[in-house]
Design a binder for these strands. Structure first.
Length: 598
RNA sequence: UGCCCGAUAGUGUAAUGGUAGCACAAACGACUCUGACUCGUUUUGUCUAGGUUCGAGUCCUAGUCGGGCAGCCA
């Protein structure tokens, strides 16, 4: 293999504090395999913050020949729904496609953890398989039997008890961070009574909220999560996945650590707000005296890109109040929104990997994301000509029916670029921004008496500006210097400016959606009300003139409209032969930033 | 006013106790049939005060600032 043929995936693996720990565990052979997991709750859509967790967990798996299980953390039947299971699964698959698909852990359809014997002790275990027609993601709700069994064991060991305190009383007894809690009056029930009561809770004998199962730890602990945390609550609600079999449901802290254990997870990475929960995570696993190596929890800082709002709750509000058109609105940082916007999965991965993994809460400049997008698209996107805000230009030395074929490059970044033919005709559209009757200094574009090159065609000179009665420019009359075309005698003639264009008679009208950031401030989440800082110009819809070859554009195709930016056909509103384009991101522009422009 | 965590250029992120690097951003320049890309140059940094040490971004102490924790949410 030559140096040139090394695939881009050969980029050095990232290093961070979690990977350093994993590497140490690999060296000491602590686990038989490195297994991570991505555990979303199916109560909303995935966003770019989740992408960080996905890249970390799948990244660790692929770098260590391991596995990363997709597991739905669905222990709250009131909030969860299959709709989200489907969208989350699709988003995860899209995000890791071609990168870590081989690490994705599913389970055989319909299976639950099997009771096995490990190290001479009874145990539960559910191994992962590759995704396929007979497999599905993991669900914490498939562990309810095993979890119930472990809860019974905790009771038998005198480490859990049934508490009859009401929600309000429970809160009062818990105390405050700076004040110790008080023991529940039910803390010293006998094991037999606890067993009986817990079984009757499960049997449905008590109404919602009447009793809970609690861990017996320490009501005076400075860590409030250790003050006899709730393990189970009563909810007479059917579960979208588990059906109506249960009326007691485990809480996150109890379910999560054991779900990790059941799947043989080695490293359980979560965000920083779970740091105080780690002691509980460890306590539950250790209290059960389990036979296999225990998973451990590691916490990292969430991704917070500037100008974005990431929490599900806030995104939901933007959707409900119709600030955006839905969960997959291209202005939203949801994975489905980013995909619809035209951002490649590889760009999302490059971005989150470049940000790194630390324990420091930070805000990442959106420019880093935009750079990653442009960097990927520069290689992936096919070049086309399009005019967003057209103004007519007449080449007076061409006859009305004359067609001059020009060769345009599709992929200038390729080592073996291909070309296509585009038609130069007497009348063309150019970008209205590319003409100025009274140009500022250093204006390289079309101006009175000036010359520019029409990209892939020839140099033209502006002779005359035609205006209507109101004084608005209606037409620019120019002379084409046909000997400056590629291959002609004067082809090497230099002019300072080159502009894009589209033939008036050979073009396609199309709706183009120009998206901009959704908020006007870098940290909308820090605002008293983020609705007040919504960018009123986050969407500008224009009817653009496109070169005809764009009629066949399909969703999933990436284009660069030269000198403008990257565009992709909208996956929802495009129809065959009539694409609607979304602007993914503009090209970097060092001209309009100049002070002369303001 | 309890406990836990954190702090390195504008932003993000590196640095077995041994020359503070990298990326993005910004500025300037080269190149250019995309004012893009690419290439080159430059600006800007270890929160504060003590201590240990030949030597501290790194270890210790105190402080400052920031974040988190009292759902029968996850």
């Amino acid at each position: 293999m030559t140096a040139e043929s090394v695939p881009p995936t050969a980029a050095p693996a990232p290093t961070d504090f979690i990977r350093t720990i994993v590497a140490a565990h690999v060296a000491e052979k602590r686990y038989s395999q490195i297994v991570t997991r991505f555990p979303p709750e199916p109560n909303g859509y995935l966003h770019i913050g989740h992408a960080k967790s996905i890249c970390l967990n799948f990244g660790i798996a692929r770098e260590n020949n391991g596995r990363c299980n997709l597991r739905f953390d669905d222990t709250n039947p009131a909030k969860e729904d299959v709709e989200f299971v489907d969208s989350i699964t699709a988003d995860v698959k899209w995000l890791i496609a071609g990168w870590a698909d081989h690490c994705l852990g599913f389970k055989p359809k319909g299976t639950h953890p099997a009771k096995v014997t490990s190290s001479g002790q009874p145990d539960y275990y559910l191994a992962a398989v590759n995704p396929g027609p007979d497999s599905e993601p993991f669900f914490a709700s498939d562990y309810f039997d095993a979890l119930y069994d472990y809860a019974l064991e905790l009771v038998r060991r005198g480490k859990a008890y049934v508490c009859d305190l009401s929600p309000k009383e429970t809160e009062a007894y818990r105390g405050a961070p700076d004040k110790p809690g008080r023991n529940s009056p039910f803390r010293h029930r006998s094991i037999a009574e606890n067993l009986d009561l817990f079984q009757r809770m499960r049997a449905g004998e008590f109404p919602d909220g009447a009793r809970t199962l609690r861990a017996k730890i320490d009501m005076a602990s400075p860590n409030v999560w250790l003050r006899d945390p709730l393990l189970y609550r009563i909810r007479h609600v059917p579960h979208y996945h588990a059906g109506d079999k249960w009326c007691v449901y485990p809480l996150y802290d109890y379910a999560h650590c054991l779900s990790d254990y059941l799947e043989g997870i080695s490293h359980s990475a979560c965000s920083l707000e779970f740091v105080p929960h780690r002691a509980l995570y460890d306590w539950i696993l250790e209290a059960l005296d389990l036979p296999r190596p225990l998973p451990r929890q590691y916490e990292f800082a969430k991704l917070v890109p500037s100008y974005m709002l990431l929490s599900k709750r806030n995104i939901l509000r933007l959707v409900q109040e119709k600030v955006v058109a839905g969960w997959d609105d291209p202005r939203l940082p949801t994975i489905s929104g980013l995909r619809r916007r035209g951002i490649p999965a590889s760009a999302i991965r490059c971005f989150v990997i470049s940000v790194g993994v630390t324990t420091f809460n930070s805000v990442t400049d959106i420019a880093v994301f935009e750079h990653a997008i442009r960097d990927e698209l520069n290689t992936l996107a096919v070049r086309r000509l399009a005019v967003l805000k057209p103004i007519k230009l007449v080449l007076t030395n061409l006859t009305p029916g004359e067609v001059i074929e020009c060769n345009a490059t599709n992929d200038p970044q390729s080592e073996t670029p291909s070309t296509r033919k585009i038609a130069l005709t007497r009348e063309v559209f150019i970008e209205s921004d590319d003409f100025a009757e009274f140009p500022p200094s250093k204006y390289f574009r079309l101006k009175p008496g000036g010359e520019v090159r029409l990209k892939y065609a020839c140099i033209i000179k502006l002779d005359e500006i035609v205006k209507d009665a109101a004084g608005a420019v209606t037409e620019l009359r120019c002379t084409a210097q046909l000997d400056t075309r590629s291959g002609q005698s004067n082809a090497d003639k230099k002019v300072k400016g080159t502009i894009h264009w589209v033939s008036v008679t050979r073009c396609l009208d199309a709706e183009v959606r120009l998206y901009d950031r959704l908020f006007t401030v870098p940290e909308p989440g820090a605002e008293e009300d983020f609705m007040k800082v919504v960018n009123p110009h986050s969407l500008d819809v224009v009817t653009a003139k496109l070169e005809t070859s764009l009629a066949g554009a399909q969703p999933g195709d990436y284009y660069q409209f030269e000198r403008l930016g990257y565009f992709t056909p909208d996956a929802k509103d495009s129809t065959p032969g009539q694409p609607v384009f979304n602007r993914t991101v503009s090209l970097k522009d060092t001209w309009t930033k100049l002070p002369a422009q303001s």
